[in-house]
């Protein structure tokens, strides 16, 4: 396959950026999208041109490092996968592919296609940790969790923090990420003691960097882990409950 890439090039965080055309020749349909970029970079290097900077790590869809806006779609045209899991067979010979970094005020561009997603770390930090018994490991199944609850919590925990939700959102909102990170704890019994302080702290921290949700649902379709909008509703409900809760009575059921 012969392709034309239009790639966002930006020398540094405050440098002006622009789309630059690069040919990508003799690309095998079996290659992953990132392998295609590797080939293009090798050629650029051979020509003495600075290679395109992009983030990647595990290349099997579990680390959350890679993430590119490909033809106006976060992680490209294949739904439910990260950029690294996208293969060139999804494109046709002669295609022009536009590649941009995530663009959001909360994700400043480091260089070319690489962005700084440390604002996500700030949100996680604000959540703090959960109180668990230390010492020797407790017996398995000491704390009972219904199967469906465990599954639903795991669905939220599948978030790899890639930032596609923010990138796809017309408001650059980080609701889906934050909601998933809140829900995977707040659904489980182990997450109950700090449930109300956690949702308050994480939402407030999120709002320092990101926009507000208008319920378009773009995040859900962009998410490589197909995390549900239902978690955003849960976050909104818990945030309001947290504001009403008498904190001295949180150990009471109901």
């Amino acid at each position: 396959m012969d392709l034309t890439l239009q790639v966002w090039r930006q020398a540094g965080p405050n440098a002006p950026g622009r789309l630059v055309d690069y040919p990508a020749k003799d690309i095998s349909p079996e290659m992953s999208f990132l392998e295609m970029l590797d080939i293009v970079n090798e050629n650029l290097n051979a020509q003495g041109i600075e290679p395109i900077a992009f983030d990647h790590d595990c290349r099997e869809g579990i680390c959350g490092m890679c993430g590119l806006m490909i033809n106006g779609l976060a992680h490209g045209p294949q739904l439910g996968t990260a950029t690294c899991q996208l293969h060139m067979r999804k494109f046709n010979d002669g295609d022009t592919i536009v590649i941009e970094p995530w663009k959001a005020a909360g994700f400043p561009i480091v260089r070319d296609l690489a962005v700084d997603r440390s604002t996500f770390d700030r949100i996680i930090e604000a959540g703090g940790f959960i109180t668990v018994p230390t010492g020797s490991a407790s017996d398995a199944n000491l704390t009972l969790v219904p199967k469906e609850v465990a599954e639903w919590s795991m669905d939220a925990a599948a978030c790899i923090g890639c930032g596609a939700c923010v990138a796809a959102c017309p408001n650059s909102a980080a609701q889906l990420f934050t909601a998933a990170k809140i829900a995977h704890l707040s659904l489980l019994p182990q997450g109950q003691p700090e449930r109300w302080t956690r949702v308050e702290a994480m939402v407030d921290k999120m709002e320092e960097f990101f926009g507000s949700c208008t319920n378009h649902g773009e995040c859900e379709t962009a998410c490589p882990k197909e995390i549900s909008l239902d978690f955003i509703a849960l976050m909104n409900k818990d945030y309001m409950k947290a504001k009403f809760k008498n904190r001295r009575l949180v150990s009471q059921a109901g």
Partner: peptide, 28 residues
């Protein structure tokens, strides 16, 4: 107020036209 918040969060715009998968004309 939320529009101002959102405009502040989306200073950078994509050069390529977005392909909307979930957002409806009404929502946008």
């Amino acid at each position: 107020a939320l529009t101002i918040t959102n405009n502040r969060a989306t200073i950078d715009k994509y050069k390529q036209p977005r392909e909307w998968l979930a957002a409806s004309y009404a929502s946008r």
